[in-house]
Each structure stands twice: as C-alpha cells, then as structure tokens.
C-alpha cells in the first residue's frame, strides 16, 4: 500500500488539529465544569400542577437559606411561565425548566442560557448573566402553529439593586 509523504504529513497535521480541539473541549468539561444540561431527571409532565416543585406558587425566582438562587420555569404553549422575572447580574443562577405539553427549546439571546425542554424531563442549567438589561426569553423549537408567539421576558438588574422576591408559601416563613 502506497502513502505519499505529503499525505502522511497532512494526516499528522489534521490529527494534531483534531486532538487540539478535543483536548480543549475535554479540559473545559472536566476541569472547568463547562457542560451542557444533562441531568437526566424525570418528571411527570401531565401532573406538574400537583407536583411540589413546579406548583404555581413555586415558579419563578427563589433564594434558599444559603443565598443560592433557583429559577423554576414552566414552558407551555405559548409562553414561559412566569412571563416576567427579574434576576441579579453576575450571580450564579440555577434554572430548572419543565414542559407541560410538547417539546420546547429555550434560549436567551447574547447569553449562554440555552436548553431543550423535553416533556417528561427536568432540564437544569447553571449560568450567570454578565450584563444587566432587558432580555427576551425565546422558544427555539417548533412546538405548534403559535410557536412564533412563544416568548417571555427576563430583567437582569445590577447585583446590588436586585431584591429577592417575597418568600412564597413553599419558601416557608409564614407566621
């Protein structure tokens, strides 16, 4: 079998290029925890309203006793609920997305908040928004003829001006 020396050289260069990409991706994933939403957590999409976590009162932004912020969102034709939320900039946020009906996807332009929302699963993603502003939250997977109209809003406010929402019934301190 004949391999031209030039081909051999090019093959080595190509393998080096690919190895470089793989090393960068692997080190980001393994050492800096840069990962896609992959929590493989199931939930019954038909009974979300009866679930503890995604009952209507618990949706939106919640701060727990350690000060960690979790944002629980429900996607359903044709919006994301709650339709308007407010979060602090430069702060770690854990988003938990579920669907009440069909397949959806969500992204917030100019940020890396992006995930598919598959019925039957909770999609969890951690991110933080560096810049304050008024961002749209867009559905990016075809979900029906009203798909264009599926969007909501998120206000990212300066960290020191952000006020945690009132604790809800689940949050606990009812007197």
């Amino acid at each position: 079998m004949h391999i031209d020396p030039l081909e051999k050289k090019w093959a080595q260069i190509v393998l080096a290029i690919c190895a470089f990409f793989v090393v960068v991706i692997m080190s980001d994933a393994l050492f800096h925890s840069v990962n896609a939403p992959s929590n493989v957590e199931t939930i019954n999409s038909a009974t979300l309203h009866l679930s503890k976590e995604f009952a209507e009162d618990n949706l939106g932004v919640q701060v727990d006793e350690n000060g960690d912020i979790t944002v629980r969102m429900v996607a359903g034709r044709y919006s994301f609920f709650p339709k308007r939320i407010s979060v602090p900039a430069e702060t770690k946020l854990t988003f938990r997305w579920v669907s009440i009906d069909v397949l959806h996807g969500v992204h917030i332009p100019m940020t890396n908040m992006s995930t598919m929302i598959v019925p039957g699963f909770v999609a969890e993603i951690e991110t933080s928004f560096p810049k304050p502003g008024d961002y749209p939250v867009l559905c990016n997977e075809y979900c029906g003829l009203g798909h264009d109209h599926m969007w909501s809003k998120i206000d990212v406010v300066e960290k020191d001006q952000w006020k945690a929402p009132q604790a809800t019934s689940m949050g606990g301190d009812e007197k």
């Binding site: 991706i25 692997m26 994933a29 990962n35 896609a36 939403p37 992959s38 929590n39 493989v40 957590e41 996807g105 992006s114 995930t115 598919m116 929302i117 598959v118 039957g120 699963f121 909770v122 999609a123 969890e124």
Partner: peptide
C-alpha cells in the same frame, strides 16, 4: 444533536 437535551448524560455527549 442532543447536546442541549436533558435526557442524556454528559459522559455520552462527550
């Protein structure tokens, strides 16, 4: 195609 999907774990995606 499923990088952003919640039903598969990150090891398989990698």
């Amino acid at each position: 195609h499923l990088y952003m999907d919640p039903e598969q774990a990150k090891g398989w995606k990698l």
